[in-house]
Design a protein around this nucleic acid. Structure first.
Lengths: 216, 216
DNA sequence: CGTCTCATGTGAAAAGGTTCACAAAAAAAT
DNA sequence: ATTTTTTTGTGAACCTTTTCACATGAGACG
């Protein structure tokens, strides 16, 4: 059995399925068809089935997929059937918002450490977490057994912070700074560029860009 | 000449080129090769040339692309060689952060209207903008000539807000609520799902997912 | 001025991702 | 019990995107 590479798009869609399944569960649906699941996330039934088929056979022909079970399975595939310890760097604008961003905790991502280099912030309590000096990160990251770092510092200093984060042994980084960060091959880095989508909207508006929308 | 559909990925990469070009300009580079531009955003030279070729011939063989000029051209293609008037719905956690998010204003997106339904917030001044009652949106959106709406309200009410935003004539929406919003065909909708990338990191960590060049 | 080097622009090939279409299996109906 | 209906799972076909490879043009240099 060859381990085929799963595409980025498939993973992202798993997140969508999970979200839809949570709603379906709340609405007390026992099962759901690929058709219904697709409709709820503006995708095609074939896409749903194909995505799921990469990981196994979760459905019953003629009936559909068991909602609760599939939800658990996808959570397990995504690795969010557990808690992740997250540290956040830069308690500014975006950083503060992320600390109380419910969707993170709902998916099992716990921000339990805050770092900043501003002396006025260090030592103060932000939503129940004492802000640490960024200089102490190595020790503190290890003590708290942090597994994921979220970077919300200005672009000008982001690379320095990331270099230190990598040195401290972190293998997964989510970057909000608008800069292309360099990390070693074995470190997973993802970028969140919020103005990109606005730029896409701008492009679409001025160019009357035809919308690609899966027909259902 | 047939107007070929430009892919979403190409548009997103234009944003990256623009970012790199700004840095190059600051570093006083007159020209830049596709190779260098690619390196700065972890892409391939062929990709850069192909992307740009969809919109014209901006380079000089043997020399590369003129930095300042290409920057202007891309800004024009993306439609951000002008200012966009943006309204933000939901002055909570994420909403407040977005109001002072520098990257938006840097790209020409001006958040000039804030809406909320919380009576305690309505009428108060947030970073120089008076928060309006969401009930008055239609009149206020038209008076302020808003072109883009950013949704940062809870998922439970997002669809209602969006329905009203659409009724008020807005044709471009950036949604931060973790829900699949329904809009008419002629309205551009983009979603910003911040926990999706964390979920991807989680997946990568538990599955030792082989890294490919990030698509965006 | 001719040659050499560099780097673009672009068809063609390759790779990757999505949709189709249908056999197979289960449930529902008769 | 048999037929009909529903819906999955999946190879194959199709479509899109990326990468290759090279002709072409511009500047550099002796």
């Amino acid at each position: 059995m060859t381990k085929k590479r799963i595409s980025e798009s498939t993973i992202h869609r798993l997140s969508l399925y999970l979200r839809a399944l949570s709603v379906l569960e709340k609405e007390s649906h026992e099962t759901v068809s690929s058709k219904e699941l697709a409709k709820r996330e503006k995708l095609t039934p074939a896409q749903v089935r194909k995505d799921l088929s990469f990981f196994g056979s979760f459905g019953t022909r003629g009936l559909g997929y068991p909602v609760s079970d599939l939800k658990k399975q996808i959570a397990s595939i995504l690795g969010i059937d557990r808690l992740w310890k997250v540290a956040l760097f830069g308690v500014g604008n975006i950083g503060s918002a992320l600390v109380s961003y419910k969707e993170f905790s709902r998916q099992g991502f716990q921000i339990i450490k805050l770092f900043d280099n501003d002396q006025r912030k260090i030592g103060s309590n932000h939503k129940g977490i004492i802000i640490s000096d960024i200089k102490d990160m190595e020790k503190e990251l290890q003590e708290a057994q942090i597994e994921i770092a979220v970077i919300a510092v200005p672009a000008t200093v982001a690379q320095y912070i990331v270099d230190d984060v990598v040195k401290a042994g972190i293998k997964a980084i989510l970057n909000f700074a608008p800069i292309n960060l360099k990390v070693p091959q074995d470190v997973y880095l993802r970028n969140e560029n919020m103005s990109m989508e606005l730029e896409y909207l701008s492009f679409a508006l001025v160019n009357n860009h035809s919308q690609k929308r899966p027909k259902i």
